[in-house]
Design a binder for these strands. Structure first.
Length: 293
DNA sequence: CCGCGGGCCTGAGAGC
DNA sequence: TGCTCTCAGGCCCGCG
């Protein structure tokens, strides 16, 4: 499910209940996620305080008082649900529900502030991992990631450099987390439409022979930043699995211009095209063959 | 090194 | 109703 806007939405939902709170009890109900949870997973969490909750690409990173960092990835179908139990000083303590474990709640955090945080992931492509903070720079899952698309380091010059010489399509290049970290199938399609660039165009054509950015690269960077910002404002996109941590749906799927809109009229003003679906490197691509070139 | 296809899982929806 | 098939917000790995 989750691309950068969904993961960021989850982070913003979890931060108020995790930061400053301690893991009072951790239930690892099922350890065979994408990677098996380590045997000492529970022991290394219980008693630790979360000093901060960050995000890198599609990973959530919880800094712990022990010096460990808890790395979490939602895979295709992962979500976090926050409820409140006990709750001496729980922010939402007026509803004293203790939500019972539901199917596919693989890991449940019981925080010292009364928050109960359940990680639910039907397909189990998600995972969690503990890494000592000092070794984070060597972490293989993070090492090769490209720049954050909403950060200052991500600009046309950078993107052009990363795409220069690439024989693959723009769609595949933008989906490559080493080029830019956090886009997935939806937002690549949406960004390319906003930039009026064909997903089939060779990635190298956003750079000059010398690797400098051309006007396409500028448009593409602007489109990527804009679509991610818009999606975060909407709480992400809810297709089948993504929910905000309070259980509410994201709303950005209503603003899709091309994704999952095969056969519909192109929304670009003045364009008479019809949205088409093709398959690229095994994934559906949606685009307008008229205004995207 | 690069680009592609397979595989990991479960569930929803379509078609028969 | 129930079966079979396809497809789904990701990413690692191995092949050519």
């Amino acid at each position: 499910m989750p691309e950068l806007p969904e993961v960021e939405t989850v982070r913003r939902g979890l931060a108020p209940v995790m930061e400053g709170a301690r893991f009072a009890q951790v239930d690892a109900r099922r350890g065979d996620l994408r990677w098996p949870l380590p045997k000492d997973f529970v022991a290394r969490l219980e008693g630790q305080t979360v000093t901060g909750l960050g995000r890198r690409a599609k990973y959530l990173l919880a800094d712990l008082s022990s010096g460990d960092v808890l790395l979490m990835h939602l895979g295709m179908s992962g979500s976090f649900r926050v409820t409140h139990e006990r709750g001496e000083s729980a922010p939402g303590a007026y509803y004293h529900e203790r939500s019972k474990a539901t199917t596919h709640d693989h890991v449940v955090f019981h925080m010292s502030n009364g928050a109960q945080i359940a990680f639910n992931d039907p397909r189990r492509f998600g995972s969690m991992k503990l890494v000592p903070r000092a070794k984070l720079d060597d972490e293989p899952l993070l090492r090769a990631l490209g720049p954050e698309p909403l950060g200052n380091a991500f600009d046309a010059a950078m993107l052009a450099r990363a795409c220069a010489g690439k024989k693959t399509s723009l769609k595949a290049a933008l989906s490559d987390q080493r080029v830019v970290a956090g886009l997935g199938n939806i937002y690549v399609c949406e960004a390319l439409h906003r930039a009026r660039l064909s997903p089939k165009r060779r990635a190298s054509t956003i750079a000059t022979r010398t690797g400098a950015p051309n006007e396409r690269a500028e448009r593409l960077v602007d489109a990527i930043k804009a679509v991610l910002q818009d999606a975060i404002k909407a709480g992400g996109s809810s297709l089948r699995d993504h929910k905000q941590t309070n259980g509410e749906l994201g709303l950005f799927q209503h603003n899709f211009r091309v994704y999952d809109r095969e056969g519909e009229r192109c929304p670009t003003p003045g364009c008479s095209g019809t949205i088409k679906r093709v398959v690229q490197t095994g994934r559906s691509t949606f685009f307008c063959p008229v205004c995207q070139s």
